[in-house]
């Protein structure tokens, strides 16, 4: 039985003064690098469970999982972003996101803390600094000396659709 870890009770949200340009992010590790996504796009975080493979898909599409009766796609961003492969461990989690009306999930190597960043603290992505597709990156945030790449899940979803090529055969 998979235990659901909802964002609310998993992450202890520090109380930073609320202001308009402050946004909350969930930080996670992918192949030893730190990434973050907007917390409002995240539905829940689950332990790794049985993934059903779907044929005819690019490698980064691992397949589908069952999230309480819904069939949700699972992506491996390490493959998508050409990052190093990390073996699944106890810390490996599946993050379920909902952007627009589309739900999907992706594997992360480890869930880190929940952070708040003001927009001014986010620098635009340098052109060559990152391995990952620039389109999906909002910018680079700095947190206690660590660099965190912030990913736009909406863009990621569009990128995925493009790469899968949905609708091309129609």
């Amino acid at each position: 039985m998979v235990e659901d870890l909802t964002v609310d009770n998993m992450l202890d949200i520090q109380n930073v003064e609320d202001s308009d340009d402050v946004e909350q992010f969930v930080c996670f590790k992918l192949a030893n690098e730190e990434y973050a996504v907007r917390i409002i796009d995240i539905q829940e975080v689950n332990r790794v469970q049985m993934i059903t493979h779907i044929p005819q898909m690019p490698k980064f599409v691992l397949g589908v999982i069952n999230i309480r009766g819904s069939v949700i796609s699972v992506f491996d961003l390490r493959i998508k972003f050409n990052l190093a492969d990390v073996a699944f461990s106890e810390k490996t989690k599946i993050v379920v996101a909902e952007v627009g009306s589309v739900s999907f999930s992706f594997i992360v190597d480890e869930i880190l803390e929940n952070i708040k960043l003001s927009k001014s603290k986010i620098d635009p992505a340098p052109s060559v600094a990152s391995n990952i597709d620039k389109d999906c990156v909002v910018g680079i945030g700095e947190l206690e000396g660590r660099m965190v790449t912030i990913i736009d899940l909406g863009k990621l979803q569009e990128d995925v659709i493009r790469e899968i090529g949905v609708g091309n055969t129609k």
């Binding site: 044929p55 898909m57 069939v71 796609s73 999907f104 995925v160 949905v166 609708g167």
Partner: peptide, 11 residues
């Protein structure tokens, strides 16, 4: 259950 839209073209 229908598959997510990502897989609408899967034969």
């Amino acid at each position: 259950k229908s598959l997510p839209d990502h897989f609408s073209d899967v034969q």
